Simulated assay, not measured.
Amino acid sequence: MGKQIGAGLFLVVLLGMVVFNMVTEEEKDPAEGEAEEYNVSGDPSQEGTAITPPNAPDGLEVGEKAPNFTLKTLDGETLSLSDLRGEKVMLNFWATWCPPCREEMPRMERFHQKYGDEIKIVAVNATGSESSIKKVKNYIQEGGYTFPVVLDKELKVNNDYQAIALPTTYFIGTDGVIQQPRKVGPMSYEYMVKMMNALN
């Protein structure tokens, strides 16, 4: 009888230790180099999200000259950022596999239709992360998007602008300088209007 009580008591203590360890493990920060998991399904009232690595750079700062680039458009033409000097520019980094980007694109098209004469949208596709250029072309055609889309096949422009998370948008003034803080995550239509009006 004493052995049975002792064994039962041992099991209770052992079970208590297991439960205690499980609870304290959940409260600890993830180990160095271990990925932390987040629920990005989000609050339905939010407009979307973007995921940024923990030690990602902060991106280019307000007051910095926007780095020039020359990339091919989906139509095979060449577009250089310097060609747009003297105009306001919304430089958007995106990919077809990015759900927040897909959420944002129809708003960008609506904005482009209304304000395309006042500000230029340039959508830089992270082509080096896409499965094919054909997929990008099909996505743009099916969506009826008419703003310029350029292909960053080597991801050099994405790297130059430190667009680690997608979508990321920079707001460039007529002087070729970044005039507003970058936006990481999808923009609302109202936010685009606000940023356009903040540029000079």
Rank of each mutant, 00 (worst) to 15 (best):
K135A: 11
V136I: 15
H112D: 05
E32S: 14
R107S: 11
E77R: 00
P148H: 06
P54N: 04
L84Q: 09
F20R: 02
T127A: 15
G144F: 02
E37K: 02
D83K: 04
T70D: 00
S45L: 07
I51N: 02
T96C: 10
E142F: 01
K120F: 05
W97S: 06
G63Q: 04
T127W: 12
Y139V: 00
Y145W: 10
L81R: 08
E64Y: 12
S82G: 11
F93L: 12
E26N: 13
L60S: 03
G33P: 10
N21I: 09
Y38E: 01
L60M: 09
K134C: 03
Y145A: 04
K114G: 00
V18Y: 07
W97C: 06
I121T: 04
E77W: 06
T73P: 09
I119Y: 03
Y145I: 08
Y115T: 10
R107L: 13
K72T: 04
S132M: 02
L79N: 07
Y145N: 06
E109P: 13
K28H: 03
C101M: 01
R107Q: 13
E64V: 08
L81H: 08
Q141K: 15
V136S: 04
I121H: 05
Y115N: 11
M105S: 03
E103T: 11
M90W: 14
E64D: 13
S41F: 06
G59R: 06
A123P: 12
S80V: 02
L60Q: 08
S45Q: 13
N125M: 07
T146V: 00
G128Q: 05
Y139K: 07
E142I: 02
E32N: 11
S82V: 10
M105W: 03
F111H: 06
G143L: 14
E32I: 15
L79K: 01
E34V: 00
S82P: 11
G33E: 05
D43F: 15
P54R: 04
I119K: 01
L91A: 06
Q141E: 02
F20M: 08
S80Y: 13
E109Q: 15
N55P: 10
P57H: 04
S80W: 07
W97T: 05
E37F: 04
E32R: 14
A56W: 15
Y115D: 04
S131Q: 10
K88A: 10
K134M: 06
N138R: 07
I140S: 08
L81P: 14
R102K: 09
R110Q: 06
N92T: 13
E34F: 01
L79T: 07
W94L: 08
D43I: 11
H112P: 12
A126H: 01
L91K: 11
W94M: 03
Y38P: 09
K88E: 11
E47S: 12
F20I: 13
P44Q: 11
E25N: 09
